[in-house]
Design a protein around this nucleic acid. Structure first.
Length: 421
DNA sequence: GTTGACTTTAGCTCT
DNA sequence: AGAGCTCCAAGTCAAC
């Protein structure tokens, strides 16, 4: 298995596609967690530890979820309402830290150990100006962050301003540095464009290198992980597009239902790390050509021809899945589904210790679920923590953190309706 | 336990 | 630039 992965990493050859597709097809729901009081807004796998997943929420809480061990999770608490974590990355120079772009108007470097946050940028007016996208350039020690009014902000790793200009007419939904050309930056926007920039010469809108015009607002634009030669965009309508270097011509258009709705996290198609496979959640549309029985599936396509190669679905977790990301080994997929996090992988043998723990959790009293709630608790592998919804925006204190930790330790099994009456 | 009101920093169009 | 309308998911909470 590992030999195959290594081979595929170094030799991404067409003829070796099928083993990876077979692996993806065999994936099943393995664990779930519900640590937040608001919906999931951002997912990021740890760059080296393939079991660690960072998840951000609409309340600004960020959790480092250890997907293999219980009670190893780390949390930083957000401000609640108006603190939505819009994007985040592991800090390349200290991978126990996470930098986030937030709707509270800041770009903040979070330390999970010390429970502190270093503010790198602050708009000082979070209602009108906030950050909604972020990436880090390891070679040039630059943090790029996009704002809701179309401004791109480049800063040093200490937060010193390098560049700030309104490059888009509207919200910059996604920024990403090319893994291939370290000077190349891609920005996606709700002004219906994806634009490529050379940060060595970036000055104003005229300095754009390439402009890829879409029919609808664009949620994301990811460079492929295999060689960085493909760019995957997701619009707010029915298009997933793949553009191809060096001239960034449109290579594939996939018709796919993933429309925008205000009160759900925008859908973003992402790459498989070892093969040019695309994963994207589906918004239910019975009338959409090719829709099967299950309308809320997670669909996986081949980039080259747009062919559907797999669909993931589990009846016990029947919600919209706008966020999906493979870990860097490609053997696990994380999904953000409403307030919940799902983990898919090939069925694993579960240790006796884990089984005992799960059995003891599922036998806890007072964990019935109402008819309107989702049936996640019936998943024997489900782990969950929930806390009461905070009343109003308030400053996070050490007591709050202690309180949160206490609650996350005591609530484990039921992730549906265990909140206090 | 069930039901329904309420809440939610988006995007589009018109003025 | 701002008001008002529309997209209609998924949770909380109070009343019954």
């Amino acid at each position: 298995m590992y030999l195959t992965l290594i081979l595929l990493y170094f030799f991404p050859i067409q003829s070796l596609y099928s083993p990876m597709i077979e692996l993806v097809k065999s994936m099943e729901l393995y664990r779930t967690a519900s640590p937040f009081d608001r919906r999931v807004t951002a997912l990021e796998w740890h760059p080296t530890k393939s079991d660690i997943l960072a998840v951000g929420s609409k309340g600004g809480d960020i959790i480092l979820w250890d997907t293999e061990h219980f009670d190893k999770d780390k949390i930083v608490q957000g401000i609640g309402a108006a603190g939505s974590c819009q994007a985040m990355k592991f800090w390349p120079w200290d991978r126990d830290k996470v930098v986030s772009a937030s709707i509270n108007g800041t770009v903040t470097l979070h330390d999970f150990e010390l429970q502190t946050g270093t503010v790198l940028a602050d708009t000082m007016n979070s209602y009108d100006h906030w950050y909604c996208s972020l990436d880090v350039n390891t070679n040039r020690y630059i943090v790029a962050a996009g704002r809701n009014q179309g401004i791109l902000h480049l800063m040093s790793t200490e937060g010193r301003k390098i560049f700030e200009y309104r490059l888009h007419k509207n919200k910059v939904t996604h920024v990403e540095f090319s893994p291939r050309e370290e000077w190349m930056l891609c920005t996606a926007s709700t002004d219906c464009t994806v634009q490529l920039w050379d940060i060595r010469f970036i000055k104003d809108r005229k300095s754009v290198v390439e402009k890829l015009v879409h029919d609808k607002p664009v949620n994301s634009a990811y460079f492929s992980h295999t060689d960085g030669c493909r760019l995957l965009t997701t619009d707010q309508g029915t298009n997933i597009r793949v553009y191809r270097a060096p001239y960034w011509h449109l290579e594939t258009t996939i018709e796919h239902p993933h429309r925008f709705f205000q009160h759900i996290t925008p859908f973003k198609a992402t790459w498989h790390p070892l093969q040019d496979l695309i994963v994207c959640g589906r918004y239910p549309d019975k009338n959409f050509p090719g829709s099967g029985q299950e309308l809320r599936t997670i669909d996986i396509f081949e980039a080259e021809n747009g062919k559907t190669v797999a669909q993931l679905y589990n009846p016990s977790s029947n919600g919209l899945c706008p966020l999906n990301k493979f870990n860097w080994q490609g053997d696990a997929l994380a999904t953000g589904m409403g307030f919940h996090i799902l983990l898919w992988n090939r069925q694993k043998l579960i240790s006796r210790k884990q089984l005992n723990l799960m059995e003891s959790m599922s036998s806890k009293p007072g964990q019935s679920s109402s008819s309107s709630s989702r049936n996640l608790a019936s998943d024997p592998l489900s782990s969950s923590r929930q806390r009461p919804r905070p009343s109003k925006k308030k400053k996070t204190t050490d007591e709050d953190i202690d309180d949160l930790k206490k609650k996350t330790k005591t609530k484990t099994s039921d992730n549906t309706k265990t909140r206090k009456k």
